[in-house]
């Protein structure tokens, strides 16, 4: 029974990992940037939810509906942050070498962390305390309601993004820029704007996920790095540019981490995840899902 419980815990939290990773993969595929500040965008989204709940009645007493109502705010706020980040900063190094882009996004991550520490202190904060709803129990497996809500929320964000890229005109423009920027300019796409929109979407989904993380776990200024690393593992695992790949990769990573934490010890989770990554890179460097033509969004 412990095994099932760990896997269920893993799937529940894995959907959040997947949603973060999808945004990370989107920027990588479309703008060609490995955004080391991606986790900090999630952190900011978490604080948006924390503070909105706190101002609207104090943590501990906040209702689940208030918390959920903050998700669109986090999405919108982080969309703006992402759009501006691309327009004002990243665009200047996007065509430079990889090292420079890593350095710049790493710098952004440090700045955001330090600003968050100055503004809100390093104390972990959580809005989860108020949701003392009983868990659903199915065949002896405990499923906390709030985690189930976060799970579906994260899946919904991922599917929304996927549908947007697949079916809308603007989504097609984003894929066009990813596949051939010169041809995208040729057919009249404003490439700089499209890249900024993409960055905005990526940041928004990170921020929305951060809202859910704030509800089920906690937020603190230095939480971002772990999510950036997880995103990296998932994207390499699922294959660059594949949203279904990222979804499966996220659920798998969540399960592996929970199983490791449950059976071995939580201090081993990162070591196990990264060992798997190294093995996968040796065995199947294109990722589990490769860059398939059918599924690839980028």
């Amino acid at each position: 029974m412990a095994l099932t419980q760990f896997v269920v815990n893993g799937l529940l939290v894995g959907a959040l990992f997947a949603a973060v990773a999808v945004g990370f993969a989107l920027i990588w595929g479309v703008v060609g940037i490995i955004n080391l500040a991606h986790g900090e965008l999630l952190m900011l989204g978490g604080y948006v939810t924390y503070w909105l709940v706190a101002f609207s009645g104090g943590s501990g007493g906040g209702s689940i509906w208030v918390a959920l109502a903050t998700v669109p705010v986090a999405l919108a706020a982080l969309y703006a942050v992402g759009y501006l980040l691309q327009r004002l900063l990243v665009t200047h190094v996007a065509d430079a070498d990889l090292f420079l882009t890593l350095l710049v996004t790493f710098g952004v991550s440090i700045v955001l962390q330090q600003l968050a520490i100055q503004a809100w202190s390093a104390t972990p904060r959580s809005v989860g305390a108020g949701f003392a709803d009983p868990s659903i129990v199915i065949a002896g497996v405990f499923i906390p309601k709030i985690k189930l809500i976060a799970f579906f929320g994260a899946i919904a964000l991922t599917l929304l993004l996927w549908g947007y890229l697949r079916t809308t005109r603007r989504g097609r423009a984003i894929r066009a820029v990813a596949q051939n920027p010169e041809a995208a300019r040729l057919v009249g796409i404003d490439v700089a704007h499209t890249r900024a929109v993409t960055f905005g979407l990526s940041a928004a989904i990170a921020g929305g996920t951060g809202s859910f993380v704030a509800m089920i776990l906690s937020v603190q200024p230095q939480m971002g790095l772990a999510y950036t690393l997880k995103s990296f593992v998932i994207v390499v695992f699922g294959g660059l540019g594949s949203i279904p790949g990222a979804l499966v990769g996220g659920l798998l990573l969540g399960s592996v981490e929970e199983l490791t934490a449950g059976f071995v010890g939580s201090q081993w989770t990162l070591a196990v995840s990264f060992s798997l990554l190294v093995v996968l890179l040796l065995v199947k460097p294109s990722g589990l899902f490769g860059r398939s033509v059918e599924e690839g969004e980028g």
Partner: peptide, 23 residues
Amino acid sequence: VLQSSSVFPDMSVHENLLMGGYV
């Protein structure tokens, strides 16, 4: 029509044509 290949390789032929009317 550019000299270098300018199709969108992972899009279908139909989607490529739709991109021609993006404006």
